[in-house]
């Protein structure tokens, strides 16, 4: 039986998170199909049909799916998914919102945040904020997974030529309505896929001082992140939070500035290839995971670093 992957998109572009889920699916089997549910999302279906390894794309195009409301998308996925051995979605806020609802409709369990595929029914996933790794076997006939995108390489976006089937049965529950959205606009790379991330913590002191981080990030072509402490203090918005309950990142280079290194922050960035920590407290736990630690006043070190790049 085939494997169904739920596409992550904004009705115009297929998000890279989908490509990571495709790679995870390819470790389970080779008959891979994608569902694109959205509104006026024909172009997403075209992009999905080109992804390497995909044999078929299902397109469900209706106002009811425009904002990915789980109340409407979940019954669609559950109905289509009955004929699949596995259903996968990236472990984004959209995937996490949708997949448990699908699981309950199918009366099956869900393996959240999978980081390794050990077999068709056996997976690894972090528990206790990444302080333990569980190997679990799914006992259900249809296996549902959300996959951590940083744990799997992206599948090639080009090279495939899948056929497209349009789904016409409409699921509009009427339980929820989209009201509004405040989406951060930024020219910087996306946090979860950027090769370099510069993050600031409570040590930044206030939101204005994040300009230092932004200038360094722009010099490096980096995304800007933050610790929970900096978000809770209102320095920066929630979409910048790196950590167990925020975004999980694994860039080539992660620069932590004024971040002490609480367990829940480390859970979100410790798989980065190279970690740099700049902190004036030499006892800060962040230095225990940093490849290069600089004990210094960030207000001097960060501008100095920027000028030397």
């Amino acid at each position: 039986m085939a494997i169904l992957i739920i596409a992550e998109h904004d009705n115009s572009t297929l998000k890279p998170a989908t490509l990571h889920a495709v790679s995870a699916a390819a470790l389970i089997g080779d008959d891979l199909e994608i569902l694109v549910a959205g509104e006026s999302c024909q172009s997403v279906a075209e992009q999905a049909s080109k992804v390497a390894g995909i044999s078929k794309v299902y397109l469900a195009d209706d106002t009811a799916y425009g904002h990915q409301l789980a109340e409407n998308v979940a019954p669609l996925v559950a109905e289509l998914g009955k004929n699949f051995s596995h259903i996968l979605a990236p472990s984004t806020t959209t995937g996490k919102n949708l997949m448990p609802r699908v699981a309950a409709l199918l009366d099956v369990g869900l393996q959240s945040d999978v980081i390794a595929v050990e077999g068709a029914d056996t997976f690894k996933r972090p528990i206790y904020a990444g302080n333990a790794i569980a190997t679990v076997r799914s006992l259900d006939e249809i296996k549902l997974l959300t996959v951590r995108t940083t744990a799997f390489d992206a599948a090639a976006a080009e090279g495939g030529s899948a056929s497209t089937e349009t789904l016409t049965e409409l699921y509009d529950s009427g339980l929820s309505r989209f009201i509004s959205e405040e989406v951060a606009k930024s020219d910087r790379p996306e946090l979860t896929s950027a090769p370099v991330v510069v993050s600031g913590g409570r040590g930044m002191g206030n939101g204005e001082n994040f300009a230092l981080i932004e200038r360094l990030a722009d010099k490096l072509g980096a995304a800007v992140g933050a610790s929970r402490a900096a978000v809770d203090a209102g320095f920066v918005p929630n979409d910048m939070q790196v950590g167990q309950t925020g975004k999980i990142v694994a860039p080539d280079l992660y620069i932590a500035v004024g971040i002490s290194g609480a367990i829940q922050h480390l859970a979100g960035m410790k798989d980065s290839k190279v970690i740099v920590a700049i902190n004036k407290d030499e006892e800060a736990p962040i230095f225990q995971v940093a490849d290069y630690g600089l004990v210094a006043d960030l207000f001097e070190a960060v501008p100095a670093l920027e000028s030397k790049l």
Binding site: H67, L69, T92, T93, T94, L175, S176, R177, F178, I179, S180, E181, E182, V183, A184, T192, P237, N238, D239, K247
Partner: peptide, 11 residues
């Protein structure tokens, strides 16, 4: 709190 920022829905 969603990946892109904030979304408001009516239930």
């Amino acid at each position: 709190e969603v990946d892109g920022g904030l979304q408001t829905v009516a239930l």
